[in-house]
Design a protein around this nucleic acid. Structure first.
Length: 696
RNA sequence: GGCGCAGUAGUUCAGACGGUUAGAAUGCCAGCCUGUCAAGCUGGAGGUCGAGGGUUCGAGUCCCUUCUGCGUCGCCA
């Protein structure tokens, strides 16, 4: 059954030849006496024609009943189409296969959706039938594009002398940073491997071993919440080089990206990638991952006289803060509602408010600032922010980090609003000189901004323990279109510095030894200075493919709760499997049947007395709860018992006893006080209790 | 965990103020049709309006609870 070629690769050269083709039925056009089928495979579409004039009766009958997405094998002669029946929309539009013989390879059942027209189908459904989803051209193209990106990376890395080395997937948990995925060990009950968050330590050890240049397309795992641009398992291009300085690594990375962009997108970058220190990026773009597809720089105006004229600005400055502005060229006529929207957005991002100036082309300045700021100071301000008549200027005044954040968010928002973030435009940026440490409010200690194996600047080494915030690290990020593609650093290769960094992070001697002893030890036997990088490959492919979600460039992605809708992973496992691993589940997550073995117990667990009491407006003390529960269960059991009595064919009765001559023999003679009567009311005051609104 | 959006035939969607038997397109089934390429024409089947409760004479529509999916913040060295 060897096919002659892929459906999409037949050409006019095949005309006149006896041909075999295989593929999926994409559409069928049944005219009664002649049937056209578009047969597709990964390379494209071919029209095959069934006509009793040249098609066997069996094949014709097959064509009549075959359904979309079934797989077929057909044989016949390839023909040139008549000029008026050419289809310019497909690559094989000038030819058609006239079928003599056909075979149904596999019939397609009722489809949950048709992949040929599924671009708008709910994503959760598509993910459950991912194998159908992947028949869509767009997704198939993305996955193939990803392959091309990886191929071009491998070609480049090989050419630069990098050696591909695999590192362990079952490794040691080092609980810094993201949460680990843990794998229990059968042989070592109670002990766990962790899946690697990155091959960081192994690649450094490969440098100690002398491999000099390592790379790997490595799978990494992080047990954190998902986003459109974040998956729990993702792929990195991981690399490491020995005897290098920062500049060597950056040059290599730039060249790698130039190579990839040229190979897979045909885009050339001749200029050096723009570089910023972390502080520059934060000040000018309000972000450590600036989107350079557009400019809209943030300008500091803290020192201007205009600032002291306006009390809102002045207060921020006197409190040690800053005032900054963004000039939006040509947007003086933003509508009031747009301005309000921007203001609300700024407030949501943490600003107190948002002052603005609309400088009309006539020269008139429309702004609340004109009331407070002297005209010459205002003009000076407009000069500083590089504004011209016709422009719109907006401001943020607050503490430095708030202003950085707010202006950064506004800048992106404005970019979106003005359509400046085009997906087919590519702008790289390199950010260097990150702070070594970040203060973590929650744990009350410093954490490594990049990771604890990053080499600080030589001139900052002395401040490691005395003034951690001052220490800058030799870390660098590559940014594409405002997305962090990856980060890297020059590593520490001396055990004494490594130990001091761990100390700065608040780790005790014993902890350091337990968690990282092996790497500190390794540095005692001659380690080369080294540095490297890790690229988020999925993200790179996503941006280059113009997609908004990583799920569109990963064959079998996970959804928001880190589960797989297709396989249903993760799933509970047999007790046997757990026993082997010496694992017992917490009571709270055991299946309910297990915990509440009898029907009675189960019901007891389900009966929410507090909720019932609330619904009935009754106050039931915690002590009474159990007895009320018992009474209720008794009632329910009694009702159940009644329910089970067979009453078929019985005369209905109105009472179980004679209904006459009944006296109430016992009377409660106590005088009822208001306090007694209201004793069980949830809320009462001055001998009244509150009537629930439902009754009102 | 917070906030926002969505959930109605297999699929994509419509459904004013709460009011007759919940519609359309497409897909599916049957019939017709020998040059279509989103084939066409005729007919038919197909619905727990995500689930539960409430208000009402009456709920797809209003209220409460809940589930699911997506986005976003927290989180992601």
């Amino acid at each position: 059954m060897r096919r002659t070629n892929y459906c999409g690769l037949f050409s006019e050269r095949d005309v006149g030849k006896l041909t075999t083709a295989c593929g999926w039925v994409e559409t069928k056009r049944d005219m009664g006496g002649v049937i056209f089928i578009d047969l597709v495979d990964r390379e494209g579409v071919l029209q095959i024609v069934f006509n009793p004039a040249y098609t066997s009766p069996e094949a014709f009958a097959l064509a009549e009943r075959v359904r979309n997405q079934s797989t077929l094998l057909v044989e016949g002669e390839m023909f040139l189409r008549d000029e008026e029946t050419v289809n310019p929309k497909i690559g094989t539009g000038t030819i058609e296969l006239r079928v003599s013989h056909a075979e149904l390879l596999s019939a397609c059942g009722d489809l949950p959706f048709n992949p040929a027209e599924a671009d708008d189908v709910r994503e959760d459904l598509r993910l459950r039938y991912r194998y159908l989803d992947l028949r869509r051209k767009r997704l198939r193209d993305n996955i193939r594009f990803r392959h091309r990106v990886i191929s071009s990376i491998r070609l480049f890395m090989d050419g630069e002398g990098f050696i591909d080395v695999e590192t362990p997937i079952l490794t040691k948990s080092t609980p810094e940073g993201a949460r680990d995925y843990l794998v229990p060990s059968r042989v070592h009950p109670g002990s766990f491997y962790a899946l690697p968050q990155s091959p960081q330590l192994f690649k450094q050890l490969l440098m100690v071993s002398g491999f000099d240049r390592y790379y790997q397309i490595a799978r990494c795992f992080r047990d954190e919440d998902l986003r459109a641009d974040r998956q729990p398992e993702f792929t990195q291009l991981d690399l490491e080089m020995s005897f290098v300085e920062m500049e060597d690594v950056l040059t290599l990375l730039e060249n790698l990206l130039r190579h990839v962009m040229d190979e897979v997108k045909g885009v050339r970058f001749d200029e050096p990638f723009p570089r910023f220190t972390w502080a520059e990026a934060m000040d000018r773009y309000g972000s450590d991952k600036p989107d350079l597809r557009f400019d809209l720089p943030i300008v500091d105006i803290t020192d201007l006289d205009a600032v002291s004229d306006f009390s809102v600005f002045n207060r921020a400055v006197e409190a040690g803060g800053v005032v900054r502005a963004i000039t939006v060229p040509g947007q003086y006529d933003l509508s009031r509602s747009t301005i309000n929207e921007l203001t609300d957005f700024a407030i949501a991002e943490g600003a107190g408010g948002m002052a603005w100036i609309a400088w009309r082309p006539s020269g008139e300045i429309y702004s609340i600032l004109t009331k407070y700021v002297k005209e010459e100071n205002l003009l000076e301000l407009l000069r500083r922010v590089d504004a011209e008549p016709g422009d719109f200027v907006l401001f943020s005044a607050d503490k430095l980090d708030v202003v950085r954040h707010v202006t950064g968010a506004l800048r992106l928002r404005l970019g979106d609003m003005l359509g400046l973030r085009q997906p087919d435009k590519f702008a790289f940026a390199i950010v260097t000189d990150f702070p070594m440490f970040e203060y973590d409010e929650e744990s009350g200690r410093y954490t490594a901004q990049h990771h604890p194996f990053t080499m600080p600047f030589k001139e900052d080494l002395d401040y490691l323990l005395s003034d951690p915030p001052r220490v800058r690290s030799q870390a660098y990020d590559f940014v594409l279109n405002g997305t962090e593609l990856g980060s890297g650093s020059i590593r520490i290769h001396r055990s004494d510095i490594q130990t001091r960094v761990f100390q700065a992070l608040g780790l005790g001697e014993k902890e350091i030894e337990e968690r990282f002893g092996f790497i500190i030890n390794a540095f005692k036997y001659g380690a080369p200075p080294h540095g490297g990088f890790a690229f988020g490959l999925d993200r790179l492919v996503m941006i280059l493919a113009g997609e908004q979600s990583l799920r569109d460039v990963i064959a079998f992605p996970k959804i928001r709760d880190a589960s797989c809708p297709m396989t249903d992973a993760p799933t509970p496992v047999d007790d046997l499997q757990l026993d082997e691993l010496s694992i017992r589940l917490a009571d709270s997550i055991r299946p309910e049947d297990d915990r509440a073995s009898t029907k009675e117990d189960k019901r007891r667990a389900e009966l929410n007395v507090k909720r019932l009491a609330d619904d009935s407006r009754l106050l039931i003390s915690p002590e009474d709860e159990e007895s009320v529960r018992d009474s209720l269960l008794e009632l329910i059991s009694f009702a159940d018992a009644l329910h089970e009595i067979d009453t078929d064919g019985l005369e209905p009765t109105f009472s179980t006893s004679e209904s006459h001559d009944i006296w109430l023999t016992q009377r409660d003679e106590r005088a009822l006080t208001a306090e007694d009567a209201l004793a069980n009311a949830p809320e009462s005051r001055q001998q009244f209790f509150f009537v629930p609104p439902v009754v009102e």
